Computed example of a mutant assay.
Amino acid sequence: MTQDFPRNLRLLCSYYKSIAEVCRRLNINRPQFNRYLSGRSMPSANTMRRFCDFFGVEEHEILMPHSQFQRLIQVRPSATTPTDSGLPETEHLEHIGKLGNAGLDKYLGYYFEYHISMACPGKLLRMLVCLERRDDKIYYQRTERLKESPHEKTYHGVYLGMANFLTDRIFMVDYESLTGHEITQTILFPTFKNRVSRLTGLKLGVSGSGERMPCAARVMYEYLGQSVDVRRALALCGLYDLDSPEIEDSIKKAVTNDIAPGEWHFRARH
């Protein structure tokens, strides 16, 4: 660390016209500054703070290994460089939303969603999903009904989100509305048949357990129709054993989270 600091300090100074300019702007004695540059001494905590404020770095950064610090500085903007992040502006994101609505109307209605539970591994979770159009956007609600044991109170989780149809894929992003502690993304294969029956894909989220582990799971949507008896549909939602006769074998197979030989990524299966 002692050898990395003077090298990092010299690198920072190289972005200025001269060492003299740096000393003048820092109002520091040149011979003393030379001792820092040579590694013969380390600055006090107060002087270190002045250096970091002047150069726009944190103290732990200026003490990094030199190669790591060099990469960091290369991508940092200088004081005179505009800090353009390169991210699209808000109107561009809204434009994507408008582009992605065409073709989703035939998917509006109610679905059962199936996937292996992230909070209760080894259990299959059935949820109720409703997609609907409001003005020029497609919104949806996913409702989770959990009762882990007969003696526990039933828990209902509500996820609210927006769906887009982009280049032959359905993209869905939602958030858990009661606590705001989770965002979930789902990508589904559309069907090119006139009749919508099932959609498959992948979902990425966070387990509801204490560890909040990011997880990916295969998912299936089973179309129920434009309208349903919501109370009866929710009564069928919840956790199921993987060998439960109430869940069709084709659904269990579709949401099994395995990786086939030759697969290098966790992939959806159409």
Rank of each mutant, 00 (worst) to 15 (best):
A20R: 14
Y15N: 09
I28V: 13
W264S: 09
E94N: 14
T90H: 12
R49D: 05
S209D: 14
S78I: 04
D229G: 10
V158G: 02
Y15K: 14
L87I: 10
A79Q: 14
H156P: 05
I28F: 10
Y15L: 05
F171V: 09
P6V: 00
L125E: 13
R195T: 12
R198D: 01
A163H: 09
I96C: 14
I187F: 03
C13E: 09
G122I: 00
H115A: 03
D168F: 07
R134F: 02
L199D: 02
R269Q: 04
D53S: 15
H92Y: 08
I247C: 06
I259A: 08
L178P: 12
Y240N: 05
L104A: 07
M127F: 06
M64R: 15
L224Y: 03
Y240M: 04
L124I: 14
V57C: 14
T191K: 10
W264A: 07
P261N: 04
K137T: 01
R145Q: 05
G210F: 13
G97M: 01
A235S: 13
A260L: 13
G208Y: 10
S250D: 14
L108M: 11
K203T: 07
T81Q: 12
G262W: 10
R25D: 09
T47D: 00
D4P: 11
D136P: 14
P65N: 07
Q32E: 02
S18Q: 11
T143W: 08
S209C: 03
P31I: 00
G97K: 10
P65D: 05
R231D: 02
S117W: 08
H66R: 15
R25K: 15
P6E: 01
D241T: 08
H156D: 00
T81N: 06
R142D: 01
V255M: 05
S207I: 02
Q226I: 01
Q68M: 13
T167H: 12
M48F: 02
H60I: 01
R267T: 06
P82K: 05
E263W: 13
F55A: 03
E21D: 12
A260H: 11
L93F: 03
L26G: 05
R212H: 07
C23M: 06
A268T: 08
